[in-house]
């Protein structure tokens, strides 16, 4: 009898829980569905009342037009070059800085670390003018390097994330490596990097998403059409007083594909990293 009651209450609990989760999932996925639906509509059909989720006339014209309106493939290529280079630069530089902060004893390391952390509170808009002046002095304005170089000089968030992870790696491993004759760089590579694959993948995903979606920096630093990124191309579809939502949705959907692919492939690392960082200490 008790077992039966327990079963029923478990079913009810599960039913309520899953219903709640399904509702949440629908809320989360609705904008995405709406984006795809709008991208498949004719221009005039966007504002029809009542709104149609499945368009009565499905059209791929917007996808065709987006390629005619902006050099979509060139923009995608530029985005890929910038995003991959900047993400690699970010992971390499942050991991080196994090290793130094986590394991190397030097005077003022704590102060330096806190100064670095405090830069997380400064919005990028504040530093954009000095960065622009520096890039201009270096002759890098209107080159992809203006976007990649700052990423290769470390970042507060990435350094913080990796430093926390590196701090949790047992000191004994490092000592054993030292006894075996390893220098700092070898320890960094063979002990710390190898042990930190999930968190490195996480940082790479974060960096990838940030640089892929970044609009402000490409708008400020780039001027030539042939160097523009996908986000700038999509934003430029927005006219001064004329927005082609259908076209923007088609472009947005296409631009999301690389992020989706990356997430699907790196999901394993991503979850593992969250789990392991949650368990540590």
């Amino acid at each position: 009898m008790h077992k039966m009651k327990y079963k029923i209450s478990t079913y009810i609990k599960n039913f309520l829980l899953y219903s709640f989760l399904i509702i949440l999932a629908i809320i989360m996925i609705a904008p995405f569905i709406w984006m795809i639906s709008t991208s498949l509509k004719e221009t005039g059909a966007i504002f029809t009342l009542p709104p149609e989720i499945i368009p009565s006339n499905i059209s791929l014209n917007n996808y065709k037009e987006i390629f005619e309106r902006i050099p979509f493939l060139n923009f995608t290529k530029n985005s890929i070059i910038i995003t991959i280079s900047a993400s690699i630069g970010q992971v390499v530089s942050c991991s080196l800085a994090a290793y130094a902060f986590a394991r190397m004893k030097f005077k003022g390391s704590k102060v330096l670390y806190y100064i670095l952390l405090s830069t997380m509170m400064i919005p990028s808009q504040v530093t954009i003018i000095p960065t622009f002046i520096i890039m201009n002095k270096l002759g890098l304005v209107d080159t992809h390097l203006a976007l990649i170089l700052p990423a290769c000089l470390g970042g507060a968030f990435g350094t913080f994330l990796l430093r926390q992870f590196f701090s949790s790696i047992p000191k004994d491993l490092e000592d054993a490596a030292k006894i075996d004759g390893c220098g700092s760089l070898r320890i960094f590579y063979h002990i710390f990097l190898i042990q930190s694959k999930p968190v490195l993948a996480t940082l790479f995903i974060f960096a990838f998403m940030f640089y892929w979606n970044d609009l402000l920096s490409p708008v400020i630093f780039l001027s030539s059409l042939d160097k523009m990124t996908l986000t700038v191309g999509l934003a430029s579809i927005q006219g001064i007083n004329y927005d082609r939502f259908d076209l923007m949705m088609a472009g947005s959907f296409l631009s999301m594909i690389p992020i989706l692919i990356l997430f699907v492939f790196a999901q394993k690392f991503f979850i593992k990293s969250i789990v392991s960082t949650g368990l540590k200490e």
């Binding site: 280079s85 209107d142 080159t143 390097l145 170089l149 030539s224 160097k227």
Partner: peptide, 13 residues
């Protein structure tokens, strides 16, 4: 290699 790749990006117009 990374630097060479980066520097190969085009300069301004």
């Amino acid at each position: 290699l990374l630097l060479t790749f980066l520097l190969s990006c085009n300069k301004s117009t």
